[in-house]
Computed example of a mutant assay.
Amino acid sequence: MRWTSMLAIYVLFWAFSVFLVLPWGVRTTQEAGGDYVAGQAESAPHEFRLGRLAVRVTIVATLLFALFAANYHYGWVTPAMLDLFDRAAVYNAA
């Protein structure tokens, strides 16, 4: 696999991981015991720490990408294993 392909796939894993990690450790203002700001939604997070989120996302994305790359190299799960409807047999019979 080329390094540019690996970089593009890593970026996709990173973007997916943002949505996976975003709700971890979120506390509302009520849960944190803080004061509401005028117009603030009750479900809004009390503090948003972009740096902490970026570190967590990078760790999760790197682990997921490492599993993907290892599977690509060693072939643990192949497309043939995921073919639930056995389409290869249908095309070969025709």
Rank of each mutant, 00 (worst) to 15 (best):
W3M: 09
T4L: 14
S5T: 11
S5N: 12
S5D: 13
I9N: 05
V11D: 10
V11N: 06
F13S: 02
W14M: 06
F16T: 01
V18N: 01
L20R: 01
L20I: 12
V21Q: 01
L22H: 01
W24Q: 03
W24H: 02
G25E: 04
Q30Y: 06
Q30M: 04
A32S: 10
A32G: 03
G33H: 02
G33Q: 01
G34I: 07
V37A: 07
V37L: 10
A38C: 09
G39P: 13
A41L: 15
E42L: 15
S43D: 15
S43A: 15
P45L: 13
E47P: 05
E47L: 10
R49S: 14
L50T: 05
R52Q: 12
A54Q: 00
A54M: 06
V55E: 06
V55S: 05
R56G: 12
R56A: 15
V57S: 02
V57K: 00
V57Y: 04
T58H: 06
T58P: 08
T58M: 08
I59K: 04
I59N: 05
V60Q: 00
F65M: 01
F65G: 00
L67T: 07
L67K: 02
F68I: 02
F68P: 01
A69K: 00
N71C: 06
Y72M: 10
Y72Q: 05
Y72N: 04
H73K: 11
H73Y: 15
V77P: 10
V77R: 05
T78P: 09
A80Q: 14
A80G: 14
A80S: 14
M81S: 06
M81E: 10
L82S: 01
L82D: 00
D83I: 05
F85L: 11
F85G: 01
R87C: 07
A88V: 07
A89G: 08
A89L: 10
V90A: 14
Y91I: 12
Y91R: 10
N92E: 13
